[in-house]
Simulated scan of single mutants.
Amino acid sequence: MAIEKLSEVKCFGGWQQRFQHQSDCLSCTMTFSVYLPPQAEQQMVPVIYWLSGLTCTDENFSTKSGAQRYAAEHGVALVMPDTSPRGDNVPDDPDGAFDFGLGAGFYVNATQSPWKAQYQMFDYVHRELPQVVESQLPVSGRKAISGHSMGGHGALVIGLTHPQDYKAISAFAPVCNPTQCPWGKKAFSNYLGDDRATWKAYDASERLDAFEGDMPILVDQGTADNFLKEQLGTPALEAANQRGLAEIRYQEGYDHSYYFIASFIGEHITFLAKALKG
């Protein structure tokens, strides 16, 4: 589980770092970013895993969100994986579209060729990457998970599938009902095949509707998001939230961009950190 440090810069008293490692799960070299707060120099710290959206890499969140300030205040680490396997031998969308293939792993375990050989992002985020991080860096096993858009979908599905491993979940503008939207239908039909019954395991609305446990969940959605109506399916998540487990907030006038994320990331990190330290 050796990792190679690619870069390091001081930030809010802690360190913004970037690493690469050979992923057994994805059969390629993967890059991930980490923010270690100043508290990590004296003790193990809890960690928030952040999952980014379509077209993103591990660096979008670290450079655009301003999250490090709040992570330093609360003494939590941030771990930011890439959004898909990468490399010359990793298959991509044949048409080069942005919503499938490279940069669009959708945090599922693909079952169809040629994708299944490497597109195992669910297992990478939930199993392999935490093993690497916890063995090499001063972070504890106390985890929360968050994300944006495709990554919000990933955070909700992974957290609700493995609630014993996460203390809380949050999401910005998540793809809430991918079995019913164009992005999800395209990705799932390719990665998972034509049996739509298998798609439900990766649908946050289906997961929340069937969830019987207890989990703090915070979801923010901008009302001016141009993807809201066609792609995100927030009403389906609201309908599935019959027990009121999730706090689903509409933020007036905000769009789908990192300006939206930067405006509320402090509240999300406070929410997640409270659960991590509870």
Rank of each mutant, 00 (worst) to 15 (best):
N177A: 14
G103M: 03
Q43K: 15
L272D: 06
E247D: 11
A197H: 11
E41D: 12
K200A: 11
E134P: 01
Y191A: 09
T111S: 14
G253H: 08
E59N: 07
E73V: 10
Q17Y: 00
A173W: 03
H153F: 04
D123N: 15
K186R: 15
W199P: 01
K185D: 00
A197F: 03
G53H: 05
S140I: 14
L245D: 02
M44A: 14
G14M: 06
V76Q: 03
G159F: 11
V157A: 10
L78S: 00
Q120H: 13
T234Y: 08
L156T: 10
V132W: 02
I248E: 04
S140N: 11
W183E: 05
D95K: 14
D82I: 04
A171S: 15
F260L: 03
Y49V: 14
D195C: 11
A204P: 13
I217D: 04
N109E: 10
M30W: 03
I169C: 07
L156N: 02
G66E: 00
G244W: 03
T63F: 14
A262P: 00
G96T: 02
I169T: 12
D165R: 10
Y124V: 09
V132Q: 04
E238I: 13
M80Q: 09
L232S: 03
E230H: 05
W115M: 09
Q251S: 12
T31M: 10
S65P: 01
D195S: 13
A155Q: 08
G14C: 06
K200W: 00
Q20W: 07
I217T: 10
P46H: 11
A72F: 04
S146E: 07
T198H: 08
W115I: 13
L160K: 09
D195Q: 14
K5L: 14
F12N: 07
P91Q: 13
A67M: 05
G213V: 11
P163A: 14
S52P: 06
E267A: 07
G159N: 10
E212A: 14
Y49L: 11
P174Y: 06
G222S: 09
K10H: 02
G53R: 01
A173V: 10
W50K: 02
S205P: 15
G105D: 05
A110E: 03
T198M: 06
Q112H: 06
L54P: 00
Q118C: 15
F211H: 06
K116G: 01
G103R: 01
L232P: 00
L26A: 11
V157W: 07
G103V: 11
F32T: 02
D123F: 07
S257P: 13
L192I: 10
P85Y: 01
M215T: 09
T179Y: 07
A275Y: 07
I145Q: 05
E59T: 09
K167Y: 05
T63H: 15
R207L: 10
T55N: 09
D58S: 13
Y166H: 07
G278K: 09
F211A: 10
R142P: 00
F271M: 06
D93V: 01
